[in-house]
Each structure stands twice: as C-alpha cells, then as structure tokens.
Write a protein that binds this DNA or RNA. Structure first.
Lengths: 211, 211
DNA sequence: CGTACATCTGAAACTGAGTCTTATCGGTTC
DNA sequence: GAACCGATAAGACTCAGTTTCAGATGTACG
C-alpha cells in the first residue's frame, strides 16, 4: 500500500513489493494469486462466510438471512476502516482495480441471486425477481458503503444500511402484496353510534387484514 | 473467434490471431486495445449511444428514455445474434472474459445511475433510489438477455424485456406514491341519495387523486 | 512530375505479470 | 542419522501490452 501510494499502482512492480516485504517474488505469488489479490486478500473468505450465512437459513427466515449477510459484509469493511479507506482511495484511481472490485461485487450478487432464486422456487417471474432483489440488495449495500467511504469512515453506517435495506425490502414486499386500493371495505354504522365506537370498529377491521 | 473455439482463449496468443488475420501484431493492437477488446469491440460505441439517448431526455420523459436505452442495448445483441451467441458461449467458459463483461455492464449501470440521480434531483434518498433503479434496470436487462442467450436466441425477447421493465417501473412507481392506506377519505352522503349517486361521487373523488 | 505530409503497417526491442522448474533451508518423524 | 515435508528462493520462460523506428501507401500542393 505504501509503495502504491508513493509511486502509483502501475509503476510499482511485484519485485518492488517483494523487496520491500523482504521476500522473493516467488513467495509473493505463493501468498497472493496476483498483484491485485494483495489488495483484496480476503474477498474469498468473506464470500465463503456469506455463502454459509445464506445456506444456514430456511425460506421462512430468508429476509433475516439477507439482512444479516449484508451486515456482515459492511461490518467487514468498517472493522478495518483504515485499510478500507486506503484501498478505496487507491481503487478509485486505478481502472484495473475498479474492474477487479466490480467483479468481486458481482460474485456476491450471484450468491444472493441463487439464494433468492431457491427461496422463491418456481413462482411466476421467480428468475426475474431473484435477479432484481439480488441486484437491489447489493446496490443498497454499495450505496451505503460508498457514502461511508467518501465521508472518510467518520460515522457508523449501520443506521443508513438498515434504512436502505428497509427500503429494498419494502419495495419488494409491497409488490408481492395486492394494493389496498384493490380491496374494498364497506362498513355501515348505526347513526346513533358515537365517533369513538365508529373508530374502534374501523380500527378492528384494519387490524384484522392479512399481511 | 474460430481460433478461440479451436484452442481455447488462453492458449490462443495475439500472434496467432494476427497471423490468422494476415496482419502483424502491431496492427492488431492498433485496432484493439487488448486481447479481450477484440471480443467486445463495440461496447464503447454502444455506451456512447446510450449516454446520448439518456441525455436527450428531460425529467418528464425519463421513463421513456430509460426504456428506450435498454431496448437499444438489447437490440444491439439481438441484431447480431450469431456473434452474440458465439461470444456468450466463450465468455461463459473464460473467467477473465466474464470479469471483463461484468465491468462493461457496470459502466452502463453507472450511466443510468447518473441519469436517474439527476432526474431525482435532491429529493430525499435520491442517491439510494438512483442506485437501486439503475441496478434494477440493468439487472432486468441482463436477466432477459441471459434467458434469450441460453435459449440460443430462438425467440424475440422484446416481450420479456417490456414485461421485466414494466415490473421494475411498477416497483418504483408504487414506492414513490403513498399507499392508499395512508390516505383517509371521509365522505358523507344524504341518506336519500341513490346508490348510483353515491358511487358516482366516490368515483369522482378517486379519479381526482394525484398520481 | 516531384515534394511534403499524414496514415497505415511492420519489425523488433523492452517491460512486467504470471507460470514453472529446480534447488536450498529448517523442522519433524522414525 | 536418514527420510520427509513445507516454505522459500533463484531463474528461466511465455505472453500481453508498450514503445520506437522504419517502410509503405495515399493525398494535397506547387
């Protein structure tokens, strides 16, 4: 990282890195698959954790699992704020790294898509909905993460994340359920009923609605 | 493409390609920025077209612009079905190309995000909503395109695309408007009013709602 | 017709990432 | 002490991508 900051990413060779680390080039490549891999060393492990978290859930707890999984990813960045910020500044500058990061994000999205797809089963449009939900969940995470990184990691992004995820979940939940406008409620009351009694009756009816 | 099919992507060197094309290595690199670029030669041009289409729109016609733009992209694949299918089979096999494609898609998503962001202005959650809409639009396109490619390009994907985009638009439109349950309509009628008159009055009220 | 200029092309050297092969060192087991 | 195993090192090798120089082709102008 220090070398990259000093000389730029492209101008820093693997030999330079190895020399600074006091090891040989061979050893560098035994530890990291590639030059970029040294910058994103733990994506694989995190991906495995996310996969495990999702697999540990059943259809009934799908939303909790998704929320949890996204929280895990964000926490992973926040827990290492210093590294995350440094990497963010670097990735923003170097197109090759940006592409690499995007490819990583796509792998998370794929996990979510497969999970949601299995969750939705063979309901109509399941494929489309799985794709959309996965994309939305990942996009929500990225939006919150980017905001936090741009601000220099100066606040706790848990609130914004929950807000964003709530937004996503509301979006899809809403779509799954018929709009209230498609329901018709007809109520009749005695003319002599008190306003309180009318309100109580209406409230009771609303509370009894499914969903 | 033929060489890639015969020997695999990695095993085919740029020298091989140049030799087969009857040009020198230099000439190859003058035409294509890189080896992958020979497989995705017109992404840049398409990206420019999409950008132009979006810029040509105003806030009032944003949804039409987005729909149009996505249709342009899909049409670009469908018009060259043979090439698209061949490339699809190749990209599916070679991780490096998959990553490259994902990075390209991210560029479209970025265009949409900026456009939607400008469209939404500084309304609350504009950043989040722009991110989500862009991700959803791109995801919808990809889902339709992948289905078409997997089926060997044997049908016209316009219908599925419109369906998917309709789903996306409905999702967000719904979210933009307050749910009917949050509106309270209190109506009083003369006891002597006919059912028809009551219905007409209600209908008139519903029609007058904003949105 | 000849000259100046721009564009396209080719040849070849060069850098650097990533692979692979071989050798050495340190520690462990029997 | 011998056999073995993991980590490291050294160095050759392939190939993508860059750069530099040189030749070829076409074009405008005097």
């Amino acid at each position: 990282m220090t070398l990259f900051d000093e000389n730029g990413y492209d101008a820093t060779t693997v030999d330079d890195i190895a020399a600074r680390a006091g090891v040989s080039r061979s050893t560098f490549f035994r530890h990291y698959r590639s030059k970029d891999d040294a910058i994103f060393p733990d994506h694989d492990a995190l991906l495995t954790r996310i996969d495990a978290r999702l697999r540990a859930s059943t259809a009934g707890t799908a939303i909790v699992a998704i929320t949890d999984a996204v929280r895990i990813v964000l926490a992973h960045y926040v827990d290492d704020a210093e590294v995350s910020l440094r990497r963010y500044r670097l990735v923003r500058e170097v197109p090759a790294l940006r592409d690499r990061e995007i490819a990583s994000v796509a792998r998370y999205q794929r996990l979510f898509r497969e999970f949601v797809g299995a969750w939705l089963g063979d309901s109509p449009d399941a494929g489309l909905r799985a794709e959309l939900m996965a994309a939305s969940v990942v996009a929500a995470h990225n939006q919150v993460l980017r905001g936090w990184l741009r601000a220099g990691g100066t606040y706790d992004p848990s609130g914004p994340l929950d807000h964003a995820l709530g937004y996503v979940i509301a979006t899809f939940r809403q779509l799954e359920q018929p709009r209230d406008s498609e329901q018709v409620v007809v109520a009749t009351f005695s003319r002599s009923a008190s306003p309180q009694a009318v309100m109580a009756a209406i409230q009771q009816h609303l509370d009894a609605r499914p969903g």
